[in-house]
Design a protein around this nucleic acid. Structure first.
Lengths: 194, 194
DNA sequence: TTCGCCATGTAATGTGTTACATGATTGT
DNA sequence: ACAATCATGTAACACATTACATGGCGAA
């Protein structure tokens, strides 16, 4: 819970229920199909959160079994729709970025300078693959110029940027640029020492 | 803990101790000054992890009080240096990206289409500010063409890319592009429905 | 009848931040 | 005397994944 009282998972649930009612299973499927790249959620978060949101009166569940298979479909209440609107109007605050390749690169001078190019190259390949995946998704999705589609475009553009950046870095490392002058290893720390 | 037995925080601790011995406090300061943008760590992670790493024999602590102020400085053992090298040679695997502005944009069609441009614009400004911050850091740090420095360059280039991308998106939204055709809201989902 | 999917859920574990408590040193 | 910084640490809470358990349905 934070300021506005919505957990990370509550935000994506409310947002998805904003377009139509869904079961927990469908929410998870929708997340995996769409927001996963920038806002993930697992069953361990979704089901308990659905219960909490229902208790808080922001969503309402209805039994909708398919045959003998039990199933609960949730939809926004008025309060829920209001909370979603409130959240949407607030300035966005959360932004996390965590990248292990970057950490390895950062320590490369002290650990294994010769490995830097390889690390950069691998990261470039990873990003290129993700971009490829997303381009495939784009190809099979109906063209659209809406914000939801823009988000997919960002995924593609961003991964292409990353692939390009790391590829150029790898080349620079290979050409010996990084190994010419080697001051104290800790000079690599962003503000230097003191 | 994961495959190689190193937690996220262990990796940054070992990496920092790779260049020289430090106290927990100094490790936290170094993280905040450098890796924070792509690999954060808090006291609540650092101190318990130092204890675990010492028990595991990867680092060794020495009392080094300054006056009456108690202080423990840690350094890598041979086993620790070996573990750091092992980790460094493995292919990088972790990469997380979480962006609340993106989530809002994704839901904009269903919640408040008119807000999309504002969300994009704010995100652009945020990225521009971060880029500015990093450029200031770059200006006051000794020029270097090492991997550690490349990481700082990435921060700048990446944030400039993001600022530019969202600014162009905001412009596109303002020019009415996104509101021309409005199919079912859920058409915005990345693979469409089913 | 077996496999894959639909569907719900929990337990265990891991990851991570915030806020607080304690206390010394240095500079104003 | 006070504030800032050095220094260590924990408790409470929040967030998140993985793996498992349960069971029905539909198709091969």
């Amino acid at each position: 819970m934070n300021d506005h009282g919505l957990s990370a998972t509550a935000k994506v649930i409310l947002g998805l229920l904003g377009s139509r009612p869904r079961s927990g299973y469908e929410i998870k499927a929708a997340v995996d199909r769409s927001t996963r790249y920038f806002w993930a959620a697992s069953y361990g978060q979704i089901y308990p959160e659905l219960r909490r949101l229902a208790e808080a009166g922001l969503i309402e569940g209805t039994d909708a079994p398919t045959g003998g298979r039990r199933r609960t479909v949730y939809e926004l209440t008025n309060a829920g729709r209001h909370a979603l609107g409130e959240w949407h109007r607030e300035p966005p605050e959360r932004f996390d970025y965590r990248d292990e390749a970057m950490l390895k690169l950062f320590f490369a001078t002290a650990v294994e300078p010769a490995g830097a190019a390889g690390i950069a190259r691998q990261r470039a390949e990873m990003a290129a693959e993700t971009a490829e995946e997303l381009r495939a998704v784009e190809a099979e999705s109906p063209g659209s110029d809406q914000p939801g589609y823009a988000v997919l475009r960002f995924g593609i553009d961003f991964n292409e940027f990353v692939a390009d950046w790391f590829e150029r870095q790898a080349l620079a490392f290979e050409e010996g640029v990084p190994l010419r002058k080697l001051p104290r290893p800790e000079a690599a720390e962003i503000e230097g020492e003191r």
